[in-house]
Design a protein around this nucleic acid. Structure first.
Length: 910
RNA sequence: GCGGGCGUGAUGGAAUGGUAGACAUACCAGACUUAAAAUCUGUUGGGGCGUAGCCCCGUGUGGGUUCGAGUCCCACCGCCCGCACCA
């Protein structure tokens, strides 16, 4: 009997697909188009199970769409710029370009054996000059349209390495290489005017019907539209030019609870005081320590500095408030100044407590509530509260009503204006790094900042750079900066900043529609292929990447690079989960004398000893086995493979391993134990990374693909288990063996149960189709398991069994395409299965004549009846009430009510 | 700190507001075998009783809506993701 040999059949069918060019996307009017795209990978050099899962999901969709008669575009490329390449150059030498292209070759080589339905003829990397040159052209067009501008912004500055650090290079407020305390420093940077599109980007979220609601909500919160009041406090004893402080508040209804005014350390008034007063300067310097992330700022201890300046309350000029410089106020949001209302904001409450400022309630939960607060009183804006210090609207009103009333009141009394603001800031794209797309502008002494001419594009990165010292090598390059001013021709200097890598990934989806075009896009191709019908990627991109891409699509429409119809580039979005794996930790008693002996005393002693994690272990370094001690909470134990002898490993009863485990833990000189941490994100440092190449060489790509789809719902994390992969392989072998068996059958053989088999088949067609359409891959696979079991046991005749196995192959083909092709060929199917039309479920075969109805009494299941599917409600009710179990439950009482849901359930209310 | 999500047997999970635990793993038992592997079959949420059967409890915790809640609402607990220079 021939065997299932994935290594052989997978290579064969991949060649067949390549020969027929079945995945080459062709622009043609004969069929509807379908564009499926997975977020392209960073070329780290190794694919991991997360990639396998991500691309397999996209592949299932792509293959399903091919089978249902679409021209499918399913491209692949590389998000190839970024810091890891420069870090590698610094750490191990070599050049970022060589490192990156080497990695791309490696990863492509690792991906191809997966048998993905990718049109490789469209492949590109963002570090190809042909790609980033077009990106520079886009930048120039954006500049022309006023979508790009320059302004100052803060960066993480490492004062020892004299370089700008990324947020991830700041560890606990210190530079990762130098260990120096990081400072915030201002630089002139390029910005995209994304904030001009805040309202539009927010409003258009409503049109994205096939995006997850959580992603839309996260984007809406990120854009952060708020209506509030902007007004000015007039100052007392302030330096000249600062007789007013403009503040913005979303809670003008709490104005009577104001107890201080806070300004950002970067506020113009703070900066002026800083120049004149050493104490202020010292305080502002203190505030500028630490990273630039919102998280770092929000979680830092709240600090304030009393400037001595005071302001008058707008409603009561006799009431004066102190002005503090405070480290938690951001210059980027609002006006960089706020009034603090400690009674209704927890941050302000803590600040007021620390600096002994008054805490004044403006509203209370009830008219007689205690005004002395333990913490800030912050009810939902939609709750009705009692305004004890209201000044507009009713005494009892919701926060929302009070805010509107307060804005109206203030406007009428000339105390400010209602304004709408957005939290969304402009997108800073300048990076002081080498391995990125050069910003195509020139600095000329005479002409200032001048855009490069398009005919000079691409402005290519020089190859001869050194990474011996931190910082941007472009800055140090002896000649690259030198150029002629595009405007006046005089000697000038190139911009040495490069672009944020988010720019690269904000339009690659459009480039895939015409990857070799001499312009960023080709309008005809863009019109045909856009939008992306199904986009697939991680939830970690829910905000930035997706928001930036939405902005770019608009900007590209404005500059004539995308049609109007493509301003929302992703019709449907799916966010998949991660692949996780157990972590194995080796713990040892490193400090105390070893514990010896057995029994409870030894156990107690072990608990009290200083057991420490010594290191992490690779999955190959441990042997797992079931815990024979059934009373323990731990079901699986593990020992070091190196400690176990051959016999113990080979033996099927786990006695020897358990004895070894006990011996190592209690009797060895080290009290050594392997601890299993379930389900953690795969990470190199924790050594819980499973290499897909191993899986593919051991089991084949189809097994890897089947497993990553089968075990968890796609939006959730999947736990990689060796036994799961094993089971997937066994199942595929089983299917192959069934195919072989049917192939050996007598072609004229008649059997029993043809109709049952075909009914089960049509139900499976229906269920799997629904599953694939709705990303319910794991549920679809469960149905395929069930149908395989049915087919395996079937005694049906040859014709029915052949139809069943061929349909099974078709339904499996998006997940396990190689095995499916092989079965198809084995059974004499026409052409390739990949291009065969998707099977259709026969509606008539889906309905059963009789149904099983559960009968509940008061919501608890008590019985079950079989009735014809079309039996009238009244008759069902009669049968249900007559049922022995129901009679017993009712105990003679008359039912109050009977609910009959046809085809579903009967509930008797006693 | 802020924003978003998730939580179901030993494990991964299934379940348009309608029989909780499909399917798979693991374990246990059986068949085949000299034996093992492989393969196949079967059992398995917890507790109880008068054990062909029946009853009680059970979807992180506590409340609520409903004839009926894993599913909807509120509060809490735990874990995960994002926070603008990681990609």
């Amino acid at each position: 009997m021939p065997r299932y040999t994935p290594a052989e059949i997978e290579a064969r069918w991949q060649q067949a697909w390549e020969k027929d060019e079945v995945f080459n996307a062709v622009r043609a009017a004969d069929k509807p188009k379908y564009y499926v795209l997975e977020m392209f990978p960073y070329p780290s050099g190794r694919i991991h199970m997360g990639h396998v899962r991500n691309y397999t999901m996209g592949d299932v969709i792509a293959r399903y769409k091919i089978a249902t008669g679409h021209n499918v575009l399913h491209p692949m490329g590389w998000d190839a710029f970024g810091m890891p390449a420069e870090n590698a150059a610094m750490a191990i030498g070599g050049h970022p370009k060589d490192w990156t292209y080497g990695n791309i070759d490696d990863m492509r080589g690792q991906m191809k054996p997966l048998g993905l339905s990718i049109d490789w003829s469209r492949e590109f990397a963002t570090c190809d000059p042909a790609y980033y040159g077009q990106q520079q052209a886009l930048f120039l067009d954006f500049l022309d349209e006023g979508l790009v501008y320059r302004k100052n912004a803060v960066v993480n500055w490492d004062p020892v390495d004299m370089t700008v650090l990324a947020n991830e290079q700041v560890e606990a407020g210190r530079g990762w290489r130098s260990g120096a305390l990081v400072e915030r420093r201002e630089l002139t940077q390029w910005f995209f005017k994304i904030s001009d599109h805040s309202e539009e980007l927010l409003a258009a979220l409503d049109t994205l019907d096939n995006w997850p609601a959580k992603v839309k909500l996260m984007q809406a919160n990120w854009i952060g539209k708020s209506r509030g009041l902007q007004f000015a406090f007039s100052t007392i004893d302030a330096p000249e030019g600062h007789d007013r402080i403009e503040v913005y508040t979303t809670r003008p209804d709490t104005l009577m609870g104001a107890s201080f005014v806070g300004i950002s350390p970067d506020h113009p008034l703070a900066k002026m005081l800083e120049r004149e007063n050493e104490d202020v300067a010292a305080f502002c310097a203190e505030c500028r320590k630490g990273g630039t992330t919102e998280e770092a700022i929000e979680t830092a201890e709240k600090l304030g500095f009393d400037t001595g300046i005071r302001v008058r309350h707008p409603f009561d000029t006799a009431h004066e408030l102190p002005v503090y410089i405070a480290n938690f106020i951001l210059m980027d949001y609002g006006t960089g100044a706020i009034f603090g209302c400690p009674a209704h904001d927890q941050r302000d409450f803590e600040f007021a407590t620390k600096y002994e400022l008054p805490i004044i309630s403006t509203y209370l939960p009830s008219e007689d509530a205690n005004e002395v607060l333990e913490e800030a009183y912050v009810p939902a804006k939609s709750d009705k509260v009692f305004y004890n210090r209201g000044f507009a609207g009713d005494a009892w009103q919701t926060g929302e009503e009070a805010i509107n009333a307060a804005v109206d009141f203030c406007e009428q009394n000339g105390v400010g204006q209602g304004v709408t603001k957005y939290r969304l800031r402009d997108w800073g794209l300048s990076r002081q790094r080498y391995w990125g797309c050069p910003i195509p502008v020139v600095h000329c002494d005479a002409c200032g900042v001048v855009p490069e001419k398009k005919e000079n594009l691409p402005i290519e990165l020089p190859y001869d750079v050194d990474f011996g010292t931190p910082g941007n090598p472009l800055d140090r390059h002896p000649t690259w900066r030198d150029c002629a001013c595009p405007s006046c021709g005089a000697p000038a200097k190139r911009e040495t900043d490069t672009m944020d890598t988010f720019v690269d990934s904000s339009w690659y989806f459009a480039r895939f529609t015409a990857p070799r075009a001499e312009t960023p896009t080709n309008m005809e191709d863009a019109k045909y292929w856009m939008n992306v019908d199904q986009y697939i990627g991680g939830i970690e991109h829910a905000i930035l990447h997706l928001l930036y891409s939405r902005f770019f699509a608009r900007a590209m429409q404005i500059t004539g690079h995308l049609p109007e119809s493509a301003i929302e580039p992703f019709d449907a979005l799916f966010t998949q989960g991660m692949v996780t794996h157990e972590i194995y930790e080796l713990w040892e008693n490193t400090a105390a004398p070893p514990v010896v002996g057995d029994g409870p005393e030894a156990e107690e002693q072990l608990k009290s000893k200083a057991m420490r994690r010594l290191n992490y272990l690779h999955p190959e370094e441990v042997i797992e086995f079931p815990n024979p001690n059934k009373h323990s909470h731990t079901n699986v134990l593990a020992v070091l493979k190196s400690s176990a002898d051959e016999e113990a490993i080979g033996s099927s009863d786990h006695k020897n391993l358990y004895e070894l485990y006990v011996r190592e833990r209690k009797f060895s000189g080290k009290n050594r134990e392997v601890i299993i941490i379930p389900s953690a994100k795969m990470s190199k440092s924790k050594k819980n990374v499973v290499d897909p190449l191993h899986i593919i060489s051991n089991y084949g790509a189809d097994t890897a693909r089947w497993f990553v789809l089968s075990d968890s719902p796609p939006e959730r994390d999947v736990e990689w288990t060796a036994s799961g992969a094993d089971a997937a392989f066994k199942h595929l072998t089983r299917v192959w063996n069934i195919c072989d068996r049917i192939g050996e059958m007598d072609k004229d053989a008649k059997g029993q149960g043809d109709d049952d088999l075909l009914r089960a088949m049509h139900k499976t067609i229906h269920d799997v189709t629904m599953g694939v359409e709705s990303f319910g891959f794991n549920a679809a696979i469960a149905k395929l398991y069930a149908f395989t079991a049915t087919l395996q046991k079937s005694k049906a005749g040859y014709a029915a069994q052949r139809e069943a196995i061929m349909t099974l192959a078709q339904l499996m083909s998006p997940m396990t395409p190689h095995l499916a092709e092989d079965i198809w060929a084995h059974q004499g199917g026409t052409g390739l299965i990949v291009t065969a039309p998707w099977p259709k479920a026969d509606e008539a075969m889906l309905v059963d004549d009789t149904v099983t109805l559960p009968i509940q009494v008061n919501g608890k299941r008590r019985a079950e009846i079989q009735v014809p599917a079309d039996m009238p409600k009244e008759d069902v009710e009669k049968i249900a009430l007559a049922h022995e179990a129901v009679v017993r439950s009712l105990d003679g009482a008359a039912p109050k009510k009977v609910i009959v849901v046809p085809g579903r359930i009967v509930n008797v209310v006693a």
